[in-house]
Design a protein around this nucleic acid. Structure first.
Lengths: 250, 250
DNA sequence: GTTGACCCTGCCCCAGGGGCAGGGTTCGAG
DNA sequence: CTCGAACCCTGCCCCTGGGGCAGGGTCAAC
């Protein structure tokens, strides 16, 4: 038998209540379990009979849930006085604004995701790679560079930052750019190719000339130089040979 | 012993990789478990050695995760061809826009939360309640009305919509407004108060006059009339007495 | 050769519910 | 008056996206 109307106060079934607030029945029961919504005394058949005050409370709960407030915190807020409640609303709103801002940024990244390296390297490195493409370095070598910079940034972000500034300056020098293009071409050469010693020598001279002008810079971190050397050498036997020649000359 | 550099390819530890992508180590392992990120073959001490390709993939994953894409879907996307991928990005972006819009709406509701009934009743009912306050109905009675409308809207939204239109029209009639204010005053009267029969009679006449002019409207749903009657009667014995008098007169 | 920072696996825990089983209730139509 | 649909009840396990902790092996530097 329904006692919904007997007391003149309890009038809604859980389903009607849930529909009113735009919430599932399950959610209502969870809010009871978590102590967010007072559970009305059962009617004679074990149903929960709700009144308008439950509907009001439930709407408040739903709004806070949608704002991303954890249930435990919602409970605190509803139990606290109105001044605390209002203060908390300010913070909640700030969080919402922050989330909106994050969504904006995420949207930009999503848009960039379908092309480009910019997401994987710093802005400086991205500029450097772009410059390489401008001077017609092969895509293969550009990608090799990109991967190297990713590793450098992962292993030693500060060193990488210093190096990339150095590289950007170097690549602005037309002589270095020519040298770089010759390396690019040498990628597929045999390690016995007779042109390699000359290339090594030109490299040595370029560095000697530059280091004469500028300060020597930070002492190269051994792990990192090895990293760069190995990464390069593993891809091209000719490049590995040049590295050897450079070592002998030193 | 570290073999990180032995092959010239595997160079990052899981911690370096995670830091690079701005992700926890645990998350990286979860992505392995879920098949999102290929797990590199272990080095001789059981560590996972990562390369630049893992870093790239991980950044993509993180961006998609931040966009709210479920891991299972991310897996599909990364496995699918680029045309499918690009198409999916469009949908993801649409979802992000939708979420931003929802945040905007939630912010408005949060702002309204600290005061007002507008969140709990329809705009029409809110207007009606405001009108009651304008003609100086007691706050107690206004809240009683509000709760009643909440119940009505929960139990039978369509009926409630029809009724509120009716009520809005009625309250615009100064005679009905006067009648309403008298009811408001009668709330605390004794059920034996000698003024009650006259009030009941005025009510009957007002309704009779109106129903003569307009069409009788939808036949009142019995559940609902009972609901309204009981809700009112339970609060005020005098009102309950008026309801009895009305029944006798009919 | 020890110390602190990493890495490994495995296990349980969290929010915020969803889904399903297995059973009782209510309500309107026939 | 009965029957079926639509509700309601409890209880249990499941999901995502990890977090935390235990218990143990490794690396690198002094």
């Amino acid at each position: 038998m329904s006692d919904a109307l007997v007391g003149g106060r309890h009038l809604l079934t859980i389903g009607q209540l849930a529909d009113y607030a735009g919430v599932t029945i399950k959610a209502v029961r969870v809010y009871h379990d978590r102590g967010l919504l007072p559970e009305p005394p059962r009617d004679s058949s074990g149903y929960r009979p709700y009144g308008a005050e439950h509907a009001i409370q439930l709407v408040k709960i739903r709004i806070l849930v949608e704002a991303g407030v954890p249930l435990a915190r919602i409970k605190e807020l509803l139990e606290a006085g109105p001044e605390r409640f209002t203060a908390a609303l300010g913070e909640i709103d700030r969080n919402l604004r922050k989330r909106a801002e994050e969504i904006r940024r995420t949207r930009q990244r999503i848009a960039q995701l379908h092309s480009g390296d910019r997401l994987f390297v710093s802005a400086e490195v991205a500029g450097y790679l772009e410059r390489l493409r401008q001077i017609a370095v092969s895509e293969r070598t550009v990608l090799l560079e990109r991967d190297l910079w990713i590793l450098l940034q992962s292993v030693a972000p500060e060193q990488a930052a210093a190096w990339i500034a150095d590289k950007l300056a170097a690549i602005a020098d037309p002589e270095f750019a020519t040298l770089y293009l010759d390396y690019d071409a040498a990628f597929d050469w045999s390690p016995d190719d007779p042109r390699l010693p000359a290339l090594a020598e030109r490299t040595r001279r370029w560095y000697a000339g530059r280091d004469g002008n500028a300060e020597p810079g930070p002492p190269p971190n051994p792990t990192i130089t090895r990293l760069a050397g190995v990464a390069a050498g593993a891809s091209s036997p000719a490049w590995a040979r040049i590295a050897e020649l450079a070592k002998e000359a030193r």
